[in-house]
Design a protein around this nucleic acid. Structure first.
Lengths: 231, 231
DNA sequence: ACCTGAACACCGTTCAAGT
DNA sequence: ACCTGAACACCGTTCAAGT
C-alpha cells in the first residue's frame, strides 16, 4: 500500500468531489432558477440534478425559502463586489443601481427573491453600499434613512416589476417585449373617458427602454436628495 | 298554487341567494386572504367556505392568479374611489399614495398581488390617478412617464416590503413589529468593519414609523419632480 | 456526520357526470 | 348553464433506516 493511500481524510480537508455542500446546492439552484424561472426550483429537480435524495438537501439547508435567499445572495454579493470603488458618490450610487438592474434583468427571479426577504443578508449588502454613498454625499444624519429607503424601495419596485413581467411572459411562453406589447394593446382598448392618461401611455410602453426609464427615475430621486442637502 | 310561485326565474333576474357568482367568490377570497395571509387562499378553503366544489369556482374564474388579481382589484378600486377630488395636485398625490399605503397595511397580501400583476387593471387604476395629477402639476409631456413610473415603483417597493414583512412575521407566528425587532437585533450583531452603516441603522429600525418614512420618501420624489418643472 | 427514498399532507387544475 | 367531487400530477417537508 503506497503512502498516498494511507493519507487519512482530515476533517479539515475539502470533501470528496461528488459530495454535497451548501455551495454546490446554491449553485445548482441558480442554474435551475435561471432556466426555469421562479418555479424552476423544486426539491425534486434539485435532487435529480445533484443525483441525491431530497432529504440530503435538507441536511445542508433548512427550507426552500432560505435556499432561495441564499441563491439570491450569491448573485447580489457578486453584483455589489463588481461595483468600482473610488468614483464620486453620485456615480457610485448610479453604478450600484445599474448593477442591480442588470443583475435582475439577467436573473429575473432575483427581483422577487429580494422582495421576499426583507432585512436579510442580500438586502443588507445593498443598504450598506447605498448608505455609505449617501453619507459621502453629505446627507444629514437624520435624513439618511429616508434617502436610503427611498432609493432602495424604488430599486426594489422596479426589480419586482421586471421579475413579474418575466414571470408572466414565461407563463404565456412569449418573450418579455411581446408581453409588454400585449399590455400596450390592452391599454389602447381602455375607455377614453375613464383612462385618458393610461391610454396615452400605450405607445410609450411599446417603445420604451426599461433601463433608460430606470435611470431617469433614479436621477429624479437623486435630485430630490441633493435638494435637501444642508447649506 | 299562488301567482308568486308561478313567477319564472328570468335570465335577467339576480341568481338565487345561495348561488355562486364572481363577486361572491372574490369577496370570499378577500376574507380568506385577510385572515390567512398570502397562502390562506386555496381552492379547497374557498370551496368549503362557499359550500361548493372546486370545479364550480373554475366555472366563474379562469385560475388562481386571476382570482388573486380580482381580489386585489376590489381593494384598489375602493381605495382609489375613496380619494377626495378637488384638492391640489400635490395633496391629491399624497392622498393616493397614503391611501395605498394604508390599504396594503390593512391587507398585506395586496402588496404582493399588486407586484405580481404588472399592467393589469389594479395597476391601471393607480397609474391613471397618479398620471392625472402629474399632468395637473405641469410636468412636461415627455417627463410624465418618468415621474409616474418613479412614484409608482416607489409605492410598489414599499408595499411589497410591507407585504413581505407581514408574511415572514406570520410564518414565525409573531407580529410585524416583533419581526422588525428581530431584524434589528441581527443588524446590531453585524461586523462593524463590513457593515458600519447598516449597524448604525439598527436602532432606527426598532423605533421607526413606517408610515412617516413612507411619506418622507414620497416628498423626496415630489421635490425631485418639482425640480424638473419647466420655467 | 451525512445520505436515501418512501411517505405524508398538502396544492391547482381537469373532467366525466349530474341537474 | 351551472355545479359536483373524484382523480391527476404535482408540491415541500419529515423521518426511519442505512453507511
Amino acid at each position: 500500500m503506497s503512502r498516498w493511500a494511507m493519507v487519512k481524510k482530515s476533517a479539515r480537508n475539502p470533501r470528496r468531489e461528488g459530495s454535497l455542500s451548501r455551495e454546490r446546492i446554491v449553485e445548482a439552484s441558480i442554474a435551475l432558477l435561471d432556466d426555469g424561472g421562479e418555479d424552476g426550483l423544486t426539491f425534486r429537480a434539485l435532487s435529480e440534478r445533484l443525483a441525491t435524495g431530497a432529504g440530503a438537501i435538507y441536511w445542508h439547508v433548512p427550507n426552500k425559502g432560505e435556499l432561495l435567499t441564499a441563491a439570491c445572495d450569491a448573485i447580489i454579493a457578486r453584483t455589489m463586489n463588481a461595483v468600482a470603488a473610488g468614483a464620486s458618490p453620485e456615480t457610485t450610487l448610479r453604478d450600484v443601481a445599474l448593477g442591480l438592474f442588470d443583475a435582475i434583468d439577467a436573473h429575473p427571479w432575483v427581483g422577487s427573491a429580494l422582495m421576499r426577504s426583507p432585512g436579510q443578508l442580500p438586502m443588507v449588502r445593498i443598504i450598506e453600499r447605498i448608505g455609505q454613498q449617501v453619507r459621502r454625499l453629505g446627507v444629514q444624519e437624520k435624513a439618511q434613512w429616508a434617502a436610503v429607503g427611498t432609493l432602495l424601495n424604488y430599486i426594489l419596485g422596479v426589480g419586482g416589476q421586471n421579475a413579474a413581467n418575466g414571470q408572466l411572459a414565461r407563463a404565456q411562453e412569449i418573450d418579455r417585449s411581446d408581453f409588454l406589447g400585449s399590455v400596450a394593446t390592452a391599454w389602447s382598448a381602455l375607455d377614453p373617458g375613464d383612462y385618458p392618461f393610461t391610454r396615452s401611455l400605450a405607445d410609450k410602453l411599446r417603445s420604451h427602454d426599461d433601463r433608460e426609464d430606470f435611470l431617469a427615475g433614479l436621477d429624479l430621486i437623486l435630485s430630490g436628495i441633493r435638494n435637501a442637502l444642508p447649506d
